[in-house]
Amino acid sequence: MRGFLVNYLKILLAISAIREMAGGIIRTTTDAAIKKIMARRSLPFEDCGSLYQVNYLNIDSCEKIPCSMQRSSTVKVTVLFDDNGNGVSFLKHEVRWVFNYVKTQALISPDPCDGNQDCILNVNDEKTYWANIFVNETLPVMSGSMLWEAKDESNQNLICFEVPVIITV
């Protein structure tokens, strides 16, 4: 009887281990599928040296490149990135408008993005943050790009991307 009980427990442990491994595989497969879907829905951008992978970029009112941005408007930017489990909870933004190699600082809010605002959140195994960018009324009406860098407390560049834009009246 004791041998039967030991074998029964071994079988239960094996089934439990298989279920746990399968659950991990299913969870990993589901996460990978969600990341692929988000990447396909992301606005195209050029990575310019991110430490963490940017999986999704959304700029309100921008459905195609170049993003049309109206002077004197405020535009919400949302980014989904994988922080490799490092628990990123602080981002200082450096955003510049680039026109014919001339860079102009952009106004961002909130900046920095830290625990005092709801601008950085956990989403599954990833992080998402949002910030509002002000499209200054003095920007030239022309094509250029928006260069976005997000840094940690030590000024290490965590996220960097560039998006073509066109400033309109």
Rank of each mutant, 00 (worst) to 15 (best):
N116F: 13
V141F: 04
S72L: 06
A131I: 03
E63T: 07
Q105D: 14
D114S: 09
A150N: 10
E153Y: 04
N86R: 15
S154L: 14
L80T: 10
E153H: 05
V98R: 15
F134P: 00
A150P: 03
G87T: 03
N132W: 14
K127I: 01
E137T: 10
C113M: 09
T78I: 14
M146E: 10
V123G: 00
R96Y: 06
N86K: 15
V102M: 13
N100G: 01
V79M: 12
D82W: 05
F134Y: 14
V123A: 02
T78F: 12
Y129R: 03
D118C: 05
G85F: 07
V75E: 13
P112Y: 12
S109D: 12
K76E: 15
L147D: 15
N155C: 04
D114V: 05
T138K: 09
D111M: 12
G144I: 06
D83S: 09
D111F: 09
A131G: 00
V88N: 08
N136I: 03
E94D: 14
Q156Y: 10
N84R: 07
W148P: 00
T128L: 05
K127G: 01
T104Q: 12
I133E: 06
K76H: 14
N116P: 01
E63S: 12
G144T: 08
K151I: 02
F81L: 03
F99L: 05
L91H: 08
V102K: 13
V79R: 09
M69D: 02
Q105Y: 09
M146P: 06
M146R: 05
N84H: 02
H93N: 12
S145G: 04
N116E: 13
N124H: 01
I133D: 02
V98P: 03
S61H: 15
A150L: 11
D83G: 06
V98M: 11
E153D: 08
G87V: 02
S73K: 13
I108T: 13
N155G: 02
I133P: 00
L121W: 01
Y101Q: 12
V75T: 15
C62M: 11
H93D: 10
W97M: 11
Q156A: 07
A106D: 06
F99H: 02
T138W: 10
A150Q: 10
T128I: 07
G144N: 05
E126P: 00
N116M: 12
K151A: 03
W148Q: 12
D114Q: 04
V77C: 04
F134I: 07
C67Y: 07
V135R: 04
T74D: 06
F99Y: 05
P66I: 10
V79S: 14
I108Y: 00
